[in-house]
Simulated assay, not measured.
Amino acid sequence: MDRLAGERDALVQQLAFHRETLLEKVDGLGDDELRRPMTGSGLNLLGLVRHLTVTEHGWFLVIFAGEPDPYADLVDDAEFRVDDDVPSADVLDRYRETCARADAVVAAGGLDDVVTTPWGAEVNLRAILTHMIQETARHNGHADLMREAIDGTTGS
């Protein structure tokens, strides 16, 4: 990570770091471990990955880039749930693909480019990047605790 980065590079690097940290938290776990409910609400590691996929897609691809929202029909906490018939590898691949598509949107956009959210608020790319860094880092804290409870793995 470049410690003398400009604003754009610093934001992009931080988001990339936190995305990679999430993937490290799930690395080496089997399907049962990824799906194991770790909280009273049933939250699990695979659900965190799906939530961050939906969130990345929503902010970068739907709100900023104006693409259709395939997740628009999700209600309540459905974005944290993964059906049993959906392979874990597919969920992880979708996260990686969504991040790559989001990176292309970020590369083409200016930090001061403004869009209007579906709820009528104006937001620029800088704020979206900052939000996604915060969102991913916050859920990495959850992933840290879940992974440690599953197999004792800590770090990063």
Score class of each variant (00 low, 15 high):
residue 14 Q to S: 08
residue 52 L to Q: 07
residue 58 G to M: 09
residue 22 L to F: 08
residue 98 T to C: 11
residue 137 A to G: 07
residue 146 M to L: 06
residue 2 D to N: 13
residue 4 L to P: 06
residue 144 D to G: 09
residue 45 L to C: 02
residue 82 V to K: 00
residue 41 S to M: 13
residue 8 R to G: 05
residue 140 N to G: 01
residue 28 G to K: 10
residue 77 D to W: 15
residue 85 D to M: 14
residue 78 A to S: 09
residue 14 Q to D: 12
residue 65 A to W: 01
residue 40 G to R: 15
residue 145 L to Y: 13
residue 84 D to K: 12
residue 64 F to R: 01
residue 34 L to V: 03
residue 88 S to H: 11
residue 31 D to Y: 03
residue 64 F to Y: 01
residue 62 V to A: 03
residue 59 W to Q: 01
residue 107 A to C: 08
residue 126 R to S: 14
residue 20 E to F: 13
residue 123 V to C: 08
residue 94 R to F: 14
residue 23 L to M: 06
residue 50 R to G: 02
residue 120 G to N: 13
residue 46 L to M: 04
residue 121 A to D: 15
residue 75 V to D: 02
residue 37 P to A: 11
residue 18 H to W: 13
residue 3 R to E: 12
residue 137 A to P: 14
residue 100 A to W: 11
residue 66 G to R: 01
residue 66 G to M: 07
residue 122 E to G: 10
residue 139 H to T: 10
residue 92 L to T: 00
residue 106 V to Q: 00
residue 61 L to R: 01
residue 94 R to N: 05
residue 84 D to F: 11
residue 75 V to A: 02
residue 34 L to K: 03
residue 38 M to E: 02
residue 54 V to P: 02
residue 68 P to F: 01
residue 11 L to P: 04
residue 36 R to T: 09
residue 17 F to M: 08
residue 147 R to Q: 04
residue 55 T to I: 15
residue 87 P to T: 05
residue 71 Y to G: 00
residue 124 N to Q: 11
residue 67 E to Q: 12
residue 32 D to H: 06
residue 74 L to G: 01
residue 10 A to R: 03
residue 116 T to S: 03
residue 83 D to R: 12
residue 49 V to C: 07
residue 43 L to W: 07
residue 1 M to E: 11
residue 16 A to M: 02
residue 58 G to T: 09
residue 36 R to P: 00
residue 15 L to F: 01
residue 1 M to W: 08
residue 156 S to V: 12
residue 144 D to Q: 14
residue 104 A to N: 02
residue 2 D to P: 13
residue 90 D to C: 15
residue 78 A to G: 06
residue 146 M to K: 14
residue 82 V to S: 00
residue 91 V to H: 01
residue 73 D to P: 10
residue 32 D to K: 14
residue 146 M to R: 06
residue 47 G to I: 04
residue 142 H to Y: 09
residue 44 N to I: 01
residue 29 L to K: 04
residue 3 R to S: 13
residue 36 R to K: 12
residue 25 K to I: 03
residue 144 D to Y: 15
residue 120 G to R: 08
residue 82 V to A: 03
residue 137 A to W: 11
residue 140 N to R: 14
residue 17 F to R: 08
residue 99 C to F: 13
residue 119 W to F: 05
residue 131 H to P: 09
residue 33 E to F: 00
residue 78 A to P: 15
residue 139 H to N: 11
residue 36 R to H: 07
residue 63 I to T: 09
residue 55 T to G: 09
residue 137 A to K: 12
residue 92 L to W: 00
residue 124 N to A: 08
residue 139 H to I: 09
residue 110 G to W: 06
residue 30 G to E: 11
residue 97 E to Q: 08
residue 110 G to K: 04
residue 59 W to H: 01
residue 29 L to V: 04
residue 10 A to V: 15
residue 47 G to L: 02
residue 35 R to D: 03
